[in-house]
């Protein structure tokens, strides 16, 4: 059995958020506006946060990249009333966009806040903004930049998400599926990886099969002390942190 997981080495993380940017581009996650920021509607499948303990001057803080933990016992899958969220046979928690009714029960059930609601049609919204922007150029009799003439880039491998449904990290499942179809190796360090892992300049992330004792992730987990986020909740995350 294959059970994909990730190991994140916090000693190596520099907090550059390249993973967050790579994730946005790879999965065509909606760009968030300042308005979204104010309203706490950021779409961040992958985000980099700082956690701290203590009070100044006795503080210890660390930078932490967060993604969906693809739990072994995912609370979000348990609560979905239409079976739109499921854990596939490779251990990845996925969302069937065409079935989701948008009740947001999974969002309140997730202890990691790794589920995001589409408050509007992502592509459509960008299209409209681009059109307005292009019109501004036309009014001022300037040449319209090429980037505004085309519709915004959307990765053809990932399905578009309409307004009113919930979306989440997929461990770049489209990449894994493609690799499998082409017979390529999957997993760090020399196989196909999710976009965040590939983009990391410090080699913080390692992706691979947790059930395979020879995979890089298994070796790392054997060699160093590790922990999972909120292991006290019994969700058994498949993303491990080394510190």
């Amino acid at each position: 059995m294959v059970r994909y997981g990730m190991v994140i080495d916090l000693d190596r993380c520099v907090g550059c958020a390249a993973c967050a940017v790579a994730c946005k581009a790879e999965n065509s996650v909606t760009a968030s506006t300042p308005e979204d920021y104010k309203k706490r509607r950021l779409m961040e499948w992958n985000r980099v946060v700082t956690v701290f303990k203590g009070k100044y001057p006795n503080v210890s803080a660390s930078i932490m990249p967060l993604i969906c933990n693809h739990c072994e016992h995912p609370p979000c899958v348990k609560v979905c009333p239409v079976d739109a969220t499921y854990k596939n046979e490779e251990g990845i928690v996925l969302q069937r966009y065409e079935r989701c009714i948008g009740c947001k029960y999974c969002m309140v059930a997730c202890p990691y806040q790794q589920r995001f609601f589409n408050f509007y049609d992502q592509v459509e919204k960008n299209k409209e903004e681009h059109r307005m922007e292009a019109e501004k150029y036309k009014k001022e009799n300037r040449e319209v930049p090429v980037t505004l003439l085309e519709i915004p880039y959307h990765n053809p491998d990932v399905p578009p998400r309409i307004a009113g449904i919930v979306e989440k990290c997929t461990f770049c499942r489209h990449r894994l599926d493609k690799a499998k179809a082409e017979g390529k190796k999957i997993g760090s360090p020399d196989g196909v990886e999710p976009a965040c892992t590939q983009a990391c300049p410090a080699g913080t992330r390692t992706f691979g099969d947790l059930d395979d004792p020879d995979s890089e992730v298994s070796k790392l987990l054997r060699s160093r002390r590790n922990y999972q986020l909120r292991a006290d909740l019994g969700t058994e995350p498949q993303v491990y942190y080394l510190d």
Binding site: V49, T50, V51, F52, M64, P111, R230, D232
Partner: peptide, 11 residues
């Protein structure tokens, strides 16, 4: 927002 690591607050 929930704690991600037990005993450590988000900054």
């Amino acid at each position: 927002p929930p704690q991600q690591v037990v005993g450590r607050a988000l900054m």
